[in-house]
């Protein structure tokens, strides 16, 4: 039955603009990074064109491959948490916005299959975005002729991007729970915005490895120097968050009132 439910969940995206919108948003990011890199590399020409030369220099950026991968990981990690929240909120919350949840929940299909299928669609959607944007970013970086490229660096950079993407996804089931609990799309997105802010805050208190939403910033080095590898505690916290999120979503769908 899971296969049928998964197929119908993909079918529900047919003609939808949401996947294209997320691709457009994330796809613009490497172009933005490239623009900053170009401004840093050509500050005189950037100033002539009235671009953000001064601010870019103040940011302490270098137009190199290591810096480029750092920025890419930052976007996939931190920006991805927000974009994934939108994706998950859309997949779960639209059923309540369009009042189709009631049609879905009184079918001869166990409700957990719907939740798991939606999370599988979110994972596929998110990974497709990450792969497309990674290919785009590599193409742009090579076209710009940034210095410092090596196979080892590319391997590490790509691995970090995927690690950030996977960590972001581990937080997705909590968003799905908020969506089914609140029966809509606004609360989960608001929740993820608050968590991003809290993640930044906790990261500075030294508890970053214990707070799920601080772990990606910890990995990337947003709040401190980037770590070479995450502490084991962080993996336990992330796995626990993933499991609790899934359990909460399934229990909410099974036992709570689910009318619009």
């Amino acid at each position: 039955m899971f296969g049928q439910v998964l197929a119908t969940e993909f079918r529900k995206l047919h003609h939808s603009k949401a996947p294209w919108a997320t691709l457009a948003v994330l796809g613009l990011m490497p172009l933005g990074i490239a623009l900053f890199m170009w401004i840093v590399r050509e500050p005189g020409r950037a100033a002539e064109l009235g671009l953000l030369g001064t601010k870019a220099n103040l940011a302490g950026l270098e137009a190199t491959w290591p810096e480029y991968f750092y920025m890419l990981t930052l976007i996939i990690g931190v920006g991805g948490m927000l974009l994934l929240a939108f994706i998950v909120a859309y997949l779960f919350g639209r059923e309540y916005r369009d009042a189709t949840a009631k049609n879905m929940l009184a079918l001869p299909v166990a409700r957990h299959w719907f939740a798991l299928a939606k999370l599988a669609v979110a994972a596929a959607w998110w990974m497709a975005l990450v792969v497309i944007v990674l290919i785009e970013a590599l193409g742009i970086g090579l076209a710009m002729g940034l210095p410092g490229f090596s196979a080892a660096l590319a391997g590490t950079g790509i691995a970090n991007v995927f690690l950030a993407a996977v960590i972001s996804f581990l937080l997705a089931p909590v968003i799905s729970w908020i969506a089914v609990w609140s029966r809509g799309e606004v609360a989960p997105i608001a929740f993820s915005l608050v968590m991003l802010a809290l993640g930044n805050l906790f990261g500075r208190t030294g508890w970053a490895e214990w707070f799920p939403y601080s772990i990606v910033p910890l990995l990337i080095g947003v709040v401190a120097d980037p770590v070479d590898s995450l502490p084991a505690a962080s993996y336990v916290v992330l796995t626990g968050t993933f499991a609790v999120g899934i359990a909460a979503t399934l229990l909410q769908l099974r036992f709570a009132d689910n009318a619009q």
């Binding site: 049928q4 439910v5 119908t8 079918r11 529900k12 003609h15 189709t100 009631k102 049609n103 001869p108």
Partner: peptide, 18 residues
């Protein structure tokens, strides 16, 4: 209610599969 972005046939096909 129905999925607004899907056609009548597609909406019914979802019901058929499920």
């Amino acid at each position: 209610t129905a999925y607004p972005n899907l056609t009548v046939r597609e909406n019914l096909d979802i019901q058929r599969r499920l």
